[in-house]
Design a protein around this nucleic acid. Structure first.
Length: 209
DNA sequence: CTCCAGGAGTGTA
DNA sequence: TACACTCATGGA
């Protein structure tokens, strides 16, 4: 079921080539992962563009910027007071451990340590492990839970790691595959399937009409 | 106008 | 463990 859904989505939406930011630098992905928390990506793009224009698209730049200035730059992404503090905490961690995270493959340990950083919860930690450091970690977000419920007949309210294990048990540990799958699920999420009058897409997937 | 988007932290029972 | 609450902007 899980593999079939992937191939169906892949046929419909094609290659997604994520993470969607312009430079694709590791830090830009980290910053995006923090800024996108409970926020539309269109708002994150403005904040990232502001950081770029201000010359602060680096962990060192984030740490050097006064809170007042940083908050103004990221304001479009919402929750700017929290996210200002989160970005600084993650910047410090990133500077200290980037090389180590590139070298190590001990995913459970890397994940635990990321979760100890202020502002990094399960989903953000997995965003970073997968898209920044290319570790085979499957991301569970609100869209994944909805897709799991509607198209895989799973309980979307299952605990994070439990739902995650269901996906990883059904798939080979391939970071490329996990990244595509997550991107495809978000493509599905933005599509019409969660609205009334679901069209051709839902028919192919088997969404009950 | 209301609703909500690729969450996380804190407090309560 | 399981909820309720807070944080904030911009688009539909």
């Amino acid at each position: 079921m899980i593999q079939r859904l992937f191939h169906t989505l892949s046929d419909i939406y094609g290659e997604q080539h994520w993470w969607p930011c312009k430079s694709g630098s590791r830090w830009e992905i980290v910053a995006g992962a923090i800024l996108v928390q409970n926020t539309a990506w269109s708002n994150v793009e403005r904040a990232l563009a502001n950081l770029e224009t201000a010359g602060l698209m680096s962990p060192e730049g984030i740490l050097a910027a006064p809170d007042d200035e940083l908050r103004e730059l990221i304001r479009p992404a919402g929750f700017f007071r929290q996210k200002c503090a989160y970005l600084k905490a993650v910047a410090e961690f990133f500077i200290a451990h980037e090389a180590e995270y590139l070298a190590s493959d001990d995913v459970p340990v890397l994940r635990r340590r990321l979760l100890a950083v202020r502002g990094v919860g399960r989903e953000t930690a997995d965003d970073i492990l997968l898209y920044v450091f290319k570790k085979p970690v499957f991301i569970i977000d609100a869209c994944t839970r909805r897709a799991a419920e509607r198209h895989l007949h799973l309980d979307g309210r299952l605990p994070y790691e439990e739902l995650q294990r269901i996906f990883t048990d059904a798939l080979p540990p391939d970071a490329e595959l996990y990244g595509e799958y997550h991107a495809l699920i978000l493509a599905l999420c933005k599509d019409s399937c969660r609205k009334a009058g679901c069209g051709e897409v839902c028919g192919k997937i088997g969404y009950p009409s």
